[in-house]
């Protein structure tokens, strides 16, 4: 069974004037279908305003759809009764590292989620230790979050979600405010969690380089899923991606241009090594 099953999901934001009359409707999600299997690493790509963050908020039931159905971990997201169950099984990491850390000590922040769901004290200590070490932040446990770098803060936020032992974690542009080092740190932490702990990952971003190791990629534009498939399948369509205002990774673009110029390079090259190998094979 799919962990996430979304069918024809529609979300409309209403813009109201001062009297509360509806002035305009913005359709942020327009019939989105999304299927995620347990243990998968799924990336959602899209430019600003493509509806990808709105989609992320649905997966944690911070927003509810205007139309369509959404099932998460076998539970109906439209049903008020399952709200907290769903939030426990699908954790969420947000964009701004400063605005999601609650406590003034790292370990206490990680403990915030388990505290909320009523985990006993001894168990909290174990979980905090486990999840901090799984993102490599154990030695900062007694620090103040204010003294950490952006990448470190984001890893603490991930640990905070992991301490609730969710089956799935949704990351809504976790790297958008980080420098290249921080981005790599966060990405590595997420990939490790996915590979070693089998956590389902939904990674929302607009940096295409970050998702070449994903199992599947969804591309969104104007509230619709416009492309989907493995990174290789998606990235091979460089022209289409450009029309959705996404930057194709340089290597893929180079391979694409070479292919267009008549060289016999395979479609959808993702890494430098692949390109080097296929070029060497030509001569």
């Amino acid at each position: 069974m799919n962990f996430i099953e979304a069918r024809k999901l529609v979300h409309e934001y209403f813009r109201r004037d001062e009297e509360g009359n509806v002035e305009g409707i913005l359709t942020a999600l327009d019939g989105v279908d999304l299927q995620v299997k347990p243990g998968e690493f799924v990336a959602v790509l899209g430019h600003n305003g493509s509806g990808k963050s709105t989609l992320a908020k649905h997966l944690n039931v911070l927003l509810r759809a205007s139309e369509g159905t959404l099932w998460i971990d076998g539970k109906d997201a439209m049903d008020e009764e399952y709200l907290w169950d769903i939030r426990r099984s699908a954790g969420m990491v947000f964009q701004n590292p400063d605005n999601q850390l609650i406590a003034s000590v790292v370990e206490e922040d990680v403990a915030f989620g388990p505290e909320n769901i009523g985990v006993p004290t001894d168990e909290i200590w174990k979980r905090v230790e486990k999840s901090l070490s799984s993102v490599g932040m154990l030695k900062y446990r007694a620090h103040s979050p204010n003294k950490l770098s952006g990448g470190q803060k984001q890893r603490v936020a991930i640990a905070g979600v992991m301490a609730m032992e969710p089956k799935c974690i949704v990351l809504d542009e976790p790297t958008a405010m980080l420098d290249p080092n921080g981005r790599r740190e966060v990405l590595e932490a997420v990939e490790t969690l996915n590979r070693e702990k089998g956590v389902t990952v939904i990674f929302i971003t607009h940096y295409m380089e970050e998702v070449i190791r994903a199992d599947r990629v969804y591309v969104m534009d104007h509230g619709k899923v416009v492309m989907q498939g493995t990174p290789r399948q998606v990235f091979s369509q460089a022209e289409a991606l450009k029309s959705y205002r996404l930057d194709v990774p340089q290597i893929t673009l180079l391979a694409y241009e070479l292919r267009k110029a008549g060289l016999d390079v395979p479609e959808g090259i993702l890494t430098r090594e692949e390109l080097v190998e296929s070029l060497c094979r030509l001569y």
Binding site: R87, I102, N116, I124
Partner: peptide, 25 residues
Amino acid sequence: RANDLAMAMEARCYNGGAGRTKMKP
């Protein structure tokens, strides 16, 4: 920030003091 924080707290299952445990009671 307050808005973001409220959302992050809700996403981490915060719903008031009832039924909460403490890491450092």
